[in-house]
Design a protein around this nucleic acid. Structure first.
Lengths: 215, 215
DNA sequence: TTCTTCGCTTTTGTCAGACAATCGGGTTGT
DNA sequence: ACAACCCGATTGTCTGACAAAAGCGAAGAA
């Protein structure tokens, strides 16, 4: 089914098996996944709408590249939306959602301590899923999901930076604490701080590598 | 070409020729537009990704319906994003963009005075295009475009409410004035106020009609 | 009568094959 | 060395085909 094709392609892009700028030839995808061109093309259109790939007329789709400025814009709007989500969560989230959030935070902290890579990613997405869910706004949820997918185009989760992970855990605990306290303003500030820190690390790294690319 | 099919369908939905909840049968679309099923299906997937239509497995796509709560959420996030766009525009927009914005406002005021329906819509979209353009953030632009498209699913632009139009013109002038003054906070407040007013009118109307539906 | 169950029709989801249009690169000629 | 040209590769689209599933109506049982 096409959603499975979508997921496979999405994962292939997120995991870096398809690198930004790489061309995606229909026929190759057909035989590599073992599915007809119809399904491939429809899945590609979906990913294109999500911004993960970019299609050029008669040249086909390529994995989207993201410039330094676009990355900065991405983190800006992500901070905006996640702050909003945190605030709404704190002010209007259900007790059940808060409970789930704290569990996700605990799991994330544990994963960070034990150092498991894939487990860490899973825990982080669980946390964000819960945060978006708790916001109670389906549009915010959709938009943040799309943004999160695109962040992976930057090819380095800011978590991989040494020392960043511990800070990240602390910041996330701060977010959960503010939400548990039903303190909307504090939750928003904590979310914004978290994203701004991640943005700083990511953009510094990006600037460094883009300088290398410029050589 | 499929972008033309997309535009046709989008327009058919926005103009209300396809009403929310209505089923979209592939074969009918094929013969009504005069294009193969391939193009239709790809266009439908695009619209689905934009949220204009919703597909149910083996039952096909229908024009998306939007509940009262979703409408409230839509206006909330729209206020958030447009405030941000206004603030960024005021603080970082180019003089050229500001000039274009003021021209769009003037055209909108003129269209409102002369009462031309389609001209009014065109002027309003021009204003918003300019506002989003001036924000300098491609993600905000994409998201707001998507939200604007979905607002039309509510089937009554809040502008059509009597008396609302004049207020709308004033509010938009306020936005442009704040941006021209390079006053970011004021621009954001003006944008938020504008959307909040539109939301109030739209949601009141929605509540009224949904009560009628409930009878 | 009303509820359940069965089968039929419609529509989707997917595939394979075909063909024109177009893009990029390599070749050829000067 | 440079320009024009031609050719292979790829996309965009159409057609026809078929299984699978959903909805509907009719038939049958309680």
């Amino acid at each position: 089914m096409r959603t499975q094709v979508e997921d496979k392609l999405r994962q292939a892009i997120s995991s870096g098996r398809f690198k930004p700028g790489q061309r995606l030839v229909e026929r190759e995808l057909c035989e590599s996944i073992g599915v007809g061109r119809t399904s491939i093309r429809e899945a590609l259109r979906q990913l294109e709408a999500e911004g993960l790939i970019t299609s050029y007329p008669h040249r086909g789709p390529v994995v989207s590249t993201i410039t330094y400025e676009e990355a900065a814009q991405l983190y800006s709007v992500r901070a905006l939306l996640e702050s909003y989500a945190g605030k709404e969560f704190a002010e209007n989230g259900t007790a059940q959602d808060i409970h789930t959030l704290n569990e996700a935070v605990a799991e994330f902290a544990e994963a960070a301590a034990s150092g498991g890579g894939s487990r860490l990613i899973k825990a982080k997405t669980a946390f964000y899923d819960c945060l978006m869910q708790g916001s109670g706004n389906v549009f915010v949820k959709q938009m943040l999901t799309s943004l999160h997918n695109r962040v992976t185009l930057l090819r380095m989760t800011s978590m991989t930076q040494p020392g960043r992970l511990n800070h990240s855990v602390e910041e996330i605990k701060e977010i959960a604490a503010a939400i548990t306290d039903r303190n909307g303003a504090k939750a928003a500030a904590a979310c914004k701080y978290h994203i701004d820190m991640a943005a700083k690390v990511a953009l510094d790294y990006l600037r460094k590598t883009s300088e290398n690319d410029g050589d």
